[in-house]
């Protein structure tokens, strides 16, 4: 975590008129595609994951069975959500090998790739939270206050404790990630309430409230990917013109400050575990300050 003393809550966003339409300069300087490519690629990635799950029930092509909680790809590759498996273990039920193996594969993958890649490139709720943030900017809603970023880690611990006490998978009654995805794949309408709740919470109550501050699933992926390789770096920070567009679009703006400004002797790589590796800052930056790189790349100009 970054030193809380350095982080201010406004990040100077209000002083920039451009922040109301972040990315306008980038479109002018780099063209539409280069100002949106990671956004488009992320949506394609989310759609592809969703499409693979839907291919079975809709077209009878069973590439992937199950859902994000646990799935089986091509009949051989098991994948299981690690936070969910942690809850199962907290209830003192010892699962079959396929669930353990599935969680191990997921953990190894995200620990290597790094960051909360799941949150920004796979999770269906990301679309909801991004839409809410977009509408917030459009409608110029500036009210509301997000809970502290550390809440999600407390919540992850509390959920595991509650699972151990009640013997149930506590988070699965409310988890918008699995509720939404299951509703999409297996049908069901009431579960849409979960997505709507996240949208309204993010829009009216807390900016980037759910994914950025509360979701314990994201917290688990943050911990798993905290030492991963793929990182965004402010390599060309000397080009920065302080337009603050990156802060405006970043779902976790506190992670940018130190690497961009090089404060407290910080290198250019965004190493904060809360960074989702979404790459939106790379898109909206007109002078191309940011780029994807590996975490040991300390080049800066």
């Amino acid at each position: 975590m970054t030193d809380p003393a350095v982080i201010s809550r406004s990040f100077g966003i209000s002083r920039s008129a451009a922040a109301k339409a972040p990315g306008r300069d980038a479109v002018r300087d780099k063209g539409w595609w280069r100002a949106h490519r990671f956004l488009v690629l992320r949506r394609l990635s989310q759609l592809a994951v969703f499409g693979l799950f839907l291919l079975g029930p809709l077209a009878g092509l069973w590439v992937v069975k199950g859902n994000l909680s646990s799935s089986l790809t091509l009949g051989v590759l098991p994948l299981t959500d690690p936070f969910l498996l942690a809850q199962v273990l907290a209830t003192r039920h010892w699962p079959e090998t396929s669930a353990l193996l599935g969680a191990a594969i997921v953990i190894v993958f995200y620990a290597t790739v790094g960051g909360r890649v799941f949150c920004s490139w796979v999770c269906p709720v990301n679309v909801v939270t991004d839409s809410a943030a977009w509408l917030r900017r459009k409608l110029k809603i500036t009210t509301g206050r997000a809970p502290r970023g550390g809440l999600r880690y407390w919540l992850a611990g509390a959920v595991l404790l509650a699972s151990a006490i009640t013997g149930q998978l506590v988070w699965e009654s409310v988890n918008p990630v699995s509720l939404t995805q299951r509703a999409l794949i297996f049908g069901g309408s009431v579960a849409w309430g979960a997505a709507a709740a996240v949208f309204l919470f993010d829009l009216l109550i807390a900016p980037r409230g759910w994914c950025g501050h509360a979701c314990p699933v994201g917290a688990a992926y943050a911990l798993i990917g905290s030492k991963g390789l793929l990182r965004v770096a402010a390599t060309h920070s000397s080009r920065c013109n302080d337009c603050a567009d990156c802060y405006a679009v970043c779902p976790e703006p506190q992670v940018i400050v130190l690497p961009l400004k090089g404060k407290a002797g910080h290198g250019p790589v965004i190493t904060d575990r809360d960074c989702t590796n979404c790459g939106r800052c790379i898109d909206v930056c007109g002078p191309d300050v940011f780029r994807y790189t590996h975490r040991l790349d300390s080049k800066r100009d």
Partner: peptide, 9 residues
Amino acid sequence: LGACVRCGL
């Protein structure tokens, strides 16, 4: 309720 991960497999 503590063992089923609700994956639908």
